[in-house]
């Protein structure tokens, strides 16, 4: 009986790995090929006046397959037709933490995405994009793999001692904030990713008012008082908990990364 259980577990694990691999292949293809037509895009977080609009192609989701495979359980199932095209559905459930979960509908023939859906842990829809009409052929795109961020984790740890990154998230990009940005007078913006979801971690000279998905803390910086904001689709308690232990910031260590990010823009 125990042997069967072990075998079942192994098979189950293989199936998940296989589903994740299949998804990775589709996402890799989507960097070069995309469907076009009419897409309905709805965004409920971050909140906006008009949540739904139409577009000619699916919006970009900065998937990072290695992180995705580490942080999510990927399950493939039969998907309903999207804009009349048969699809495979991939559900991405976070292995730990309170991150949002995703569903992707991949075209059975083209093997590129036809729809995305992001749901909060409670099931509320955060974002959705789906084709309502699809052109007859794929279009070529000049997408590139996202650049690696070697050394950024260590630099962030030094820059913000006491920061406890939410489960599964790791820093993937950093850039300097433009002085004109909301009268920000400088500052640094770091993107955290768990493979699908992103969080924005900002070091700024001014504080931001608390809101849904926005937490901030006042810290001591080299040039005086600084504020650290954490913004994203996580429960407020998780955002606050991440910043709870932060008392000071030293942005000098992040300078290399922000300069590199700027030169690529």
């Amino acid at each position: 009986m125990r042997r069967f259980s072990v075998l079942a577990l192994l098979l189950c694990g293989t199936a998940h790995a296989s589903d994740a691999d299949d998804l990775a292949v589709a996402l890799k293809k989507a960097r070069q090929w995309t469907a076009r037509g009419q897409v309905e895009v709805s965004v409920f977080f971050p909140p906006r006046t008009l949540p739904t609009r139409t577009a000619a192609a699916l919006p970009a989701v900065p998937f990072r397959p290695a992180l995705l495979a580490r942080n999510f359980t990927v399950t493939r199932s039969e998907g309903e037709a999207v804009a009349g095209r048969p699809s495979l559905r991939f559900d991405l459930i976070p292995k730990q933490g309170a991150a949002a979960r995703w569903s992707l509908w991949i075209d059975r023939v083209w093997n590129v995405p036809l729809a995305f859906e992001e749901r909060m842990p409670g099931g509320t829809l955060a974002r959705r994009a789906a084709f309502v009409k699809v052109n007859g052929a794929l279009s070529r795109v000049s997408g590139q793999a996202l650049p690696p961020s070697t050394g950024l984790s260590a630099a962030l740890k030094t820059a913000l001692p006491g920061l406890r990154l939410p489960a599964g998230f790791t820093p993937v990009a950093a850039r300097a904030r433009a002085a004109a940005q909301e009268e920000a007078q400088g500052g640094t913006e770091i993107t955290l990713s768990d493979g699908v979801n992103v969080l924005a971690l900002i070091v700024a000279p001014r504080n931001v008012r608390p809101a849904v998905g926005v937490a901030s803390v006042r810290v001591a910086g080299a040039g005086g008082v600084r504020f650290v904001w954490l913004v994203g689709n996580l429960p407020d308690a998780a955002l606050k908990s991440a910043l709870q232990g932060v008392r000071q910031v030293d942005e000098s260590g992040l300078g290399t990364f922000t300069a590199a990010a700027d030169s690529n823009r």
Binding site: V61, A211, W229
Partner: peptide
């Protein structure tokens, strides 16, 4: 700053479109 400043930063990280 208003919360919209924080959402704008998050929007930058979401990807285009």
């Amino acid at each position: 700053l208003p919360a919209s400043a924080a959402y704008a930063a998050y929007q930058d990280a979401l990807g285009e479109g």
